[in-house]
Amino acid sequence: MTALLDLLAAIGRGLFAVLSAAGGVTLFALQAVSHIVRPPFYPRLLLRQMLEIGYFSLPVVALTAIFSGMVLALQSYTGFARFSAEGAVATVVVLSITRELGPVLAGLMVAGRIGAAIAAELGTMRVTDQIDALTTLSTNPMKYLVVPRVVAATVVLPMLVVVADILGVLGGFIVGVAKLEFNPGTYMARTWEFLEAQDVISGLVKAAVFGFVIALMGCYQGYHSKGGAQGVGAATTNAVVSASILILTFNYVITELFFAR
């Protein structure tokens, strides 16, 4: 009986902790959004963050996209050959890249690169009193630190996904033409044939949501970190893990909204 009560107590504590964290993140998100539209604004910081999140993430996103497109073409060719459907390779590559792999892989790569960096930077600022120093200098840390990062990530991630889409399709094209001996003209025609605007738009909407989630979790974990270097390390890990889980969760939700019949 005691063991059962202990088990129920542990489950209750866990559930309470999850609900408390979800409430904390939601309030933090609402606070961040409310500060986006209220002055003062920091355009210089916004541009710096756009450069940091967008421009400097280009190599990692580009490499991920191009190799994903290449392997997708190869896998679908060998798989589809079993029922003589090799002709669908170009269509499968473009739909998979624009709808799923482009936004999800770019999101996960940026979560690792930027979510971790944001959490580490804000976490260090928290434990070295720099965030308190902002307050004493009449500067709202939400406006100065959180808003530029959240806005920049939300705006820039769709741009990265456009690049990822193009390079992913290019990767598939290279393998399709150079290795699988497709005719270049036929491959491109097949790529465009079944592609609809909704496929690309759904991917860009996903990217914007993922960008918001990545920056939000990085800021939330960093902003609330405590306990010195160990606390900053934990904040960084939590930021990447929670952003990655939320990316996969929202990926399903948005897919359901766009494509459920």
Binding site: T128, D129, Q130, D132, A133, T136
Partner: peptide, 23 residues
């Protein structure tokens, strides 16, 4: 919050570790 920021405008604070913005 805005009233408090106005009060803080007349306050200077030296933190224990300096708390300089390293960026």
């Amino acid at each position: 919050r805005s009233e408090r920021e106005a009060v803080n405008a007349h306050i200077g604070m030296l933190f224990q570790q300096g708390a300089l913005f390293d960026s």
